[in-house]
Design a protein around this nucleic acid. Structure first.
Lengths: 154, 154, 154, 154
DNA sequence: TTTT
DNA sequence: TTTT
């Protein structure tokens, strides 16, 4: 029952370790800062220009736990989510707006670094929460066994 | 030579007529405010919730001109671009950040309303041969009348 | 636990009414043929060229029911799904491969036509019975109640 | 002037080295076979299922040359292009259809392997700026030396 | 500020 | 035919 599409697709590297917290509901939230960059050659000078863009990403639920467990500063990830601009208040009481990419059960995150454990694509779920509490400790998890038996058309 | 993907895909409605300006370079810039909305049923109350998200879009060049010529308040559009957060200064001299979706020659915009002239032709490309046919010059045609006797493989 | 991204995003018009069936499991499957087109000006002749591409889409579950209820020949839709190439056998016993865009609970479909609800379809023509289910008559659904006073940043 | 969106976004691994050819026009074409996979846990048996999908990709022009120079069997890549189903004829004179993802100047390809490196990042900070700086000319053979020491605000 |  |  929604009209409209709101989608962001990013591939970039984390500027710092994820900031993981647990909501009162028990759900995890992970905030990460992701850098994407593009470069081009200046037409007049001929020099190569590079520009880096920083994105604020907020992951919720299962994907937040995975982020907390496996991502770290420098990690390269694929992220798919939706844009959300939220209002917040500075310490001085001033209102500010920040735009983030929200990755919940409808979105997805995938690690693109060498070795990594990802996540099964879970079905739809409603919405992301808000209030935040404390961080949680990352835990090392074993690699899951994989099976296969594909039909290969080509 | 860029590493990273920075992509936003939106379908929504304009909250107001486009604000079109001309840069010193002569290029056009169109700013639009786009609403996307999503809705879901609250699990506890069972009531239908709707949430609207507003996006700032900045179109450049040819696509900005098209926006200025054909879009208006209420128009539904598809927009593909990249995220960019830029710093600006308030009248009081305070710094602020705003995130926008930039639609330039690498991005695209398409009108989804009834009648319409859509997107500018894509950049140079070495296309492979294909079943091709001529089409009439556009210029405000009535309805897309999307039925044809194209060769349908299935 | 998946590595890789497999995503297709299409906006186009249906070449025919959806073909809706019910699986033994009771789940619905809707097959639609979707046309997307692109056009460009030939560099040498200067004439406008248009090319139409036809896509086979298979929708599953809830979205298949919606397709059956509201889509018809000519409908414009947004579709997001994954590519799948499947093997099938011709009446003569020859193997063939067909690539489709699969839209399941992880994908999405959205109608882009003005009014979602179309007029009742014409009476069915005499045809041999099959595991085919007629698309249900469009039922007028209640307008989603507007709630929420979204915080509007701009 | 095109109406419709036809987009495919894939991240996967090459099943074999690229097949690169030169068209009569002098343009390069590279064909690659890309595997994406998804996995899930079977609800009844509880076992982990994995399914691999193979995609045929045809790259044209500059991106085809890059593919030929740097990609090889096993390479992980991001690919964005459009779907195209083309007719061809078997040695026995039978018609067949094959769907491919076409990556031309409007599409894009990015290598996700090896040294697509991250760098030592500076300490975190509150707000997202956006620096622009020069980067060195890329060299043309060995490895795409995709690395930089971006200034990271977080 | 949009739209359904 | 890839990868984890």
């Amino acid at each position: 029952m929604s009209h409209g599409i709101n989608k962001a697709i990013l591939i970039g590297n984390l500027g710092a370790d994820p900031d993981v917290r647990t909501l009162p509901s028990g759900d995890a939230v992970a905030n990460i800062s992701l850098a994407t960059s593009e470069s081009w050659t200046d037409r007049s000078t001929g020099e190569l220009i590079e520009r880096t863009e920083w994105h604020r990403i907020a992951l919720f639920g299962k994907v937040a736990e995975i982020a907390g467990d496996y991502l770290h500063k420098g990690s390269r990830v694929y992220v798919e989510g939706k844009l959300r601009t939220r209002k917040w208040t500075t310490a001085e009481g001033h209102e500010r707006y920040t735009t983030e990419v929200i990755v919940d059960a409808r979105g997805s995150m995938q690690m693109l670094d060498g070795r990594a454990v990802q996540e099964p694509a879970p079905p739809p779920k409603p919405e992301p929460p808000k209030p935040v509490r404390k961080a949680r400790k990352p835990k090392a998890r074993p690699e899951p066994a994989m099976t296969e038996d594909d039909d290969i058309p080509f």
